[in-house]
């Protein structure tokens, strides 16, 4: 049983930070609690942020998407404002996180802030260039999500509060594909690969390859991304794609654990990255023809 002295409710982000710093003793934020109840923080009190006005989903006229930190994964998975964003990659990730009742309370902020290498919203948000908004007592700061994670279960936050995430709309066309590899249907990721390609004038302008569960923190395979930039969508060769995938496999730093070996994870980064690039390019035929990749 979790030995907690006090459970506090915050009505706003500022109040949350204030309550957190008020003492006595140490505190922690709690949103859905789906992670907290499994790994109770050693603290005297918690600050509940579910009523702090952080549960909004909004779309700007320009198409940017804003997700409040306390938005539940179920809301993300079913919200029409999110449905078509990034070709559905975001709802796909949210809908495959945990199980249905967990998603009713699990929040996107909690998923990012627990900073597990396998956190499933992290790679998709990295691939979509998410910016985090962080609240201090009376100021707010924004930070690219790539800089948010500092190690397993560690972020830049300290006692500050994540208030939300902003995802920019892509200028041209964005093509996306992702895959979460698991042992059974509902499971923690063994490997999670998310690919987002910004396309302009038939060329890949920007490339994002984000990987989960294969490094101490969710990561981007920047060298592999660089391979793709500038390539023509119609003329890009399967070999180049395979090369990029192999580079991504070289970039990750997986560990051996009881879920999978590092060797397997690395090879799956290769296989799944290649497949997701092809899928993102809507080139399903190549996937099936080339060395036996699947539309996984």
């Amino acid at each position: 049983m979790w030995e907690l002295k006090e459970y506090r409710f915050a009505a706003s982000a500022q109040e949350a930070v204030a309550l957190m710093r008020q003492g006595p003793g140490t505190g922690a934020y709690i949103a859905g609690g789906t992670d907290m109840f499994l790994h109770p923080a050693e603290c005297d009190f918690v600050v509940d942020i579910n009523h702090a006005g952080l549960s909004d989903i909004a779309r700007t006229p320009a198409g940017d998407l804003f997700l409040g930190a306390a938005t539940t994964l179920h809301n993300i998975a079913t919200n029409p404002l999110v449905a078509d964003f990034a070709e559905g990659m975001l709802i796909e990730a949210a809908a495959h996180c945990g199980n249905r009742p967990v998603r009713s309370t699990a929040t996107i902020g909690g998923n990012i802030c627990n900073a597990l290498p396998s956190a499933d919203m992290a790679p998709v948000l990295l691939a979509l260039d998410a910016t985090c908004y962080i609240a201090d007592a009376d100021s707010q700061e924004s930070l690219p999500l790539v800089d948010f994670f500092v190690g397993p279960r560690a972020t830049v936050l300290e006692d500050r509060l994540l208030v939300g995430l902003a995802l920019p709309a892509e200028a041209g066309t964005r093509r996306c594909a992702s895959y979460k590899l698991t042992r059974s249907a509902e499971d923690i990721s063994l490997v999670h690969v998310c690919v987002a390609l910004g396309i302009e004038d038939g060329k890949i302008e920007t490339a994002r390859i984000a990987l989960g569960a294969v490094a101490p923190v969710p990561m981007r395979a920047v060298l592999a991304e660089a391979q793709l930039v500038g390539q023509s969508v119609t003329e890009i060769s399967p070999d180049l794609i395979a090369d990029a995938a192999a580079i991504a496999a070289g970039e990750c730093e997986p560990l051996d654990d009881h879920r999978a070996s590092a060797e397997y994870r690395r090879d799956m980064v290769r296989v799944l990255t290649r497949r997701q690039i092809l899928r993102a390019l809507h080139d399903e035929t190549t996937i099936t023809k080339d060395s036996g990749g699947t539309v996984a």
Partner: peptide
């Protein structure tokens, strides 16, 4: 909404 009451704070 369906929730798993074991991972929801009573509070």
């Amino acid at each position: 909404e369906p929730v798993n009451s074991c991972v929801v704070a009573a509070a």
